[in-house]
Simulated scan of single mutants.
Amino acid sequence: MDDASAISEPAAPAEETSVLPLETSSAIPPAELEQLTADIVAALKTVYDPEIPADIYELGLIYKVDIDNDRNVAIEMTLTAPGCPVAGEMPGWVENAVGAIPGVGRVDVTMTFDPPWSQDRMSDEARVALDWY
């Protein structure tokens, strides 16, 4: 998403750093954290909802990404609808994509439908790709 402020984020524990937006309390060196963040976003952009020709990051399905000091990644995401046919598979796709990044430890993906996804979470890139502007 281009607008990180649109992401609803509860306060992260002191030992974790939120990817969107970056915080400065991490024990991970800033340059490494910046690269890891870019790599995670790039990995998330490789995962597509099979029914929508846009990636899950640009669709706004990623609500929260936390990286702890051991480089474990916790991802909170949603789907476009609770009855999505790939609801059981997509968290695994996300886990595999992010887990393939060198230096990343454990990856935990949690699904949530609170708040429900809506089209206003989509980036301008996704809106153009879907002709929903």
Rank of each mutant, 00 (worst) to 15 (best):
W93M: 14
S26K: 14
E23Q: 13
L44K: 10
K64H: 12
T112W: 07
K45P: 08
P53Q: 01
A81P: 00
R71L: 10
T80G: 07
V104K: 11
V41P: 12
M77E: 04
T78E: 08
E125H: 12
I56P: 12
L44P: 10
P10F: 05
P30R: 08
V19K: 13
V104W: 08
I7W: 05
P50T: 03
G103P: 06
L61P: 08
M90N: 08
V41I: 14
A100C: 06
V128H: 12
Y133E: 07
G105T: 07
L59Q: 15
D55T: 03
L59F: 12
T37R: 15
L33A: 10
D39W: 12
E16Y: 03
I52R: 14
D108F: 09
I52F: 06
A74Q: 14
M111Y: 04
I40C: 06
S118E: 04
D68H: 07
D70S: 15
I62R: 08
P91L: 01
E16L: 00
S5V: 10
D39P: 10
V65Q: 14
T110F: 00
A43R: 05
L36Y: 10
V19Y: 03
W117Y: 08
K64E: 02
E76A: 05
P102I: 00
V94C: 13
T46Y: 11
E76R: 09
D120G: 14
A38D: 10
N96M: 05
S118Q: 12
L61H: 10
P50A: 03
D39A: 09
S5F: 07
D68V: 05
E51W: 10
T17L: 11
D70T: 09
D131N: 15
V104D: 10
G103V: 09
D108N: 15
I7L: 06
R127D: 01
P30Q: 10
P115A: 00
S118N: 14
G60R: 05
L36D: 04
P116E: 14
W93F: 13
F113C: 14
D39I: 03
D49V: 06
P116G: 01
A6Q: 07
G92S: 04
V98L: 13
M122S: 11
M1R: 02
S8A: 13
D3A: 08
Y133M: 13
Y48Q: 04
I101G: 13
T112R: 11
L36N: 04
V73Y: 07
I7Y: 09
L20T: 00
K45T: 02
P30L: 11
E76M: 08
A12Q: 06
I52G: 13
S18C: 15
I101Q: 12
R71A: 11
S26N: 11
F113K: 15
P85V: 00
G103N: 12
T17Q: 13
S123V: 07
V41M: 06
R121H: 11
E34Q: 13
P30W: 00
A126H: 13
V107P: 07
P53E: 08
A100L: 05
W117I: 03
A81F: 01
Q35C: 08
W117D: 02
P102A: 02
P30F: 01
I56E: 09
S26W: 00
A97N: 03
E9G: 07
S5A: 14
M77V: 02
C84E: 02
E15P: 01
M111R: 00
P102F: 01
C84Y: 02
E76L: 09
P50E: 06
T46V: 05
S123T: 05
V98C: 09
D3T: 07
E32P: 10
T80I: 01
P102H: 06
